[in-house]
């Protein structure tokens, strides 16, 4: 009998281990839906995530070896370019859009403000090759990485092959980006019944659900769609958003709905960073909507909010801040890897 029990528990352990190995994705927060990303094609492992983290922080990805992903995506600002309406890249060249905050990317179907990128694995190609950002190409990056002492070892650990390929480079960067999960805000604690909103936050939440949540859908605070949110065209940029990709006039002025998680830290706001403060954003939605043919139907009827109500909505938005994400050491600059490599 005892023997049978031992055998049974061994079998159970094997089955459990298998399940864990099969999952190989990220831990899905209890209040989140199923991720969009297909982890079976790029199962996460600690070595691959670590390699991706090194690549994310390494300026070797740029033509002059000075600009890294983190140059425009710093952790303390929810991985965006804080304080810059338009992000600047190589040789201080200024781009045409505000760098998007990076989090919960496993739940996104398409990437960039205009949805130009259709899969997270190929996202890094865009900034890497943009002449205003990193101005490099993947083939060069691969040969630069191969020539280092550090990376062939890291690729060997991660992929079992020290010969570096474009596919492995991109998949590793993807793995680090997939690991950027923000799900521990006060809002999340309230949803998990571990905390409660104060009256102001609660009122803000009620107003938010009535006026904002159709596009900024919970729990990710985006519906992952493209919308014209009534911003007048900035004629210094002439950015028509999604139209540039689909060439469909019905997509003019449409941009991807961004998440509002960690919005307190990811200013300035909108695709061109035109608003510095959340109060400006709310004033836009209540008083400055620019009418046009492609305006989102949700904004056809004006949103009416008193100034107190706006303050309450902002109080609610601040409950979306997740300090455990913004200061998570797992996302820090991987000092230990780079300093060890420098000594070698």
């Amino acid at each position: 009998m005892k023997k049978k029990l031992i055998l049974l528990s061994v079998v159970c352990m094997v089955i459990l281990a298998f399940r864990a190995a099969n999952d190989s994705g990220i831990k899905v927060p209890a209040n989140f839906p199923k991720p969009v990303y297909d982890f079976s094609k790029n199962p996460l492992t600690p070595d691959k995530v670590l390699l991706g983290r090194a690549l994310f922080y390494d300026p070797i990805l740029s033509r002059n070896n000075q600009i890294s992903c983190s140059s425009c995506h710093s952790q303390f600002s929810a991985f965006t370019h804080v304080d810059h309406a338009l992000s600047h890249g190589i040789e201080d060249k200024i781009g045409t859009r505000n760098s998007p905050a990076l989090m919960n990317l496993a739940w996104q179907k398409v990437f960039m403000w205009d949805g130009a990128v259709n899969h997270l694995d190929v996202q890094a190609l865009a900034p890497m090759s943009n002449p205003l950002e990193m101005d490099e190409n993947l083939a060069n990056v691969v040969s630069k990485l191969q020539a280092t002492k550090l990376y062939p070892k890291l690729f060997l650990n991660a992929f079992g092959d020290s010969v570096i390929t474009g596919e492995h480079t991109l998949k590793a960067i993807s793995q680090f980006m997939l690991s950027l999960v923000s799900s521990n805000s006060k809002y999340d604690s309230v949803m998990r019944k571990q905390a409660a909103f104060n009256d102001q936050e609660q009122n803000g939440y009620t107003l938010f659900k009535k006026n904002c949540a159709s596009c900024h859908k919970e729990p990710l605070f985006t519906n992952d769609e493209f919308k014209n949110n009534g911003l007048p065209l900035d004629t210094t940029l002439n950015d028509y958003g999604r139209f540039g990709i689909t060439k469909n006039p019905l997509d003019s002025f449409k941009f991807k709905v961004p998440t509002l998680r960690n919005i307190e830290f990811s200013y300035p706001y909108m695709h061109d960073g035109r608003f510095k403060k959340l109060s400006q954003v709310l004033n836009h939605y209540t008083a400055e909507i620019h009418q046009s043919q492609t305006l989102s139907p949700e904004l056809h009827k004006p949103i009416v909010l008193t100034s107190n109500e706006k303050v309450d909505i902002i109080a609610f938005l601040l409950t979306l801040s997740d300090k455990s994400f913004l200061f998570n050491p797992q996302y820090f600059y991987p000092k230990e890897i780079f300093s060890k490599a420098a000594k070698d």
Binding site: N118, L125, A139, T165, E167, H168, K171
Partner: peptide
């Protein structure tokens, strides 16, 4: 295959046959 992310061999984006500013 155009929406399946990064692939290897002849489909590796290092081959100069993959757009970067837009996927495909």
């Amino acid at each position: 295959s155009n929406v399946s992310g990064a692939m290897g061999g002849d489909l590796d984006p290092t081959k100069g046959m993959y757009w970067t500013w837009q996927s495909g």
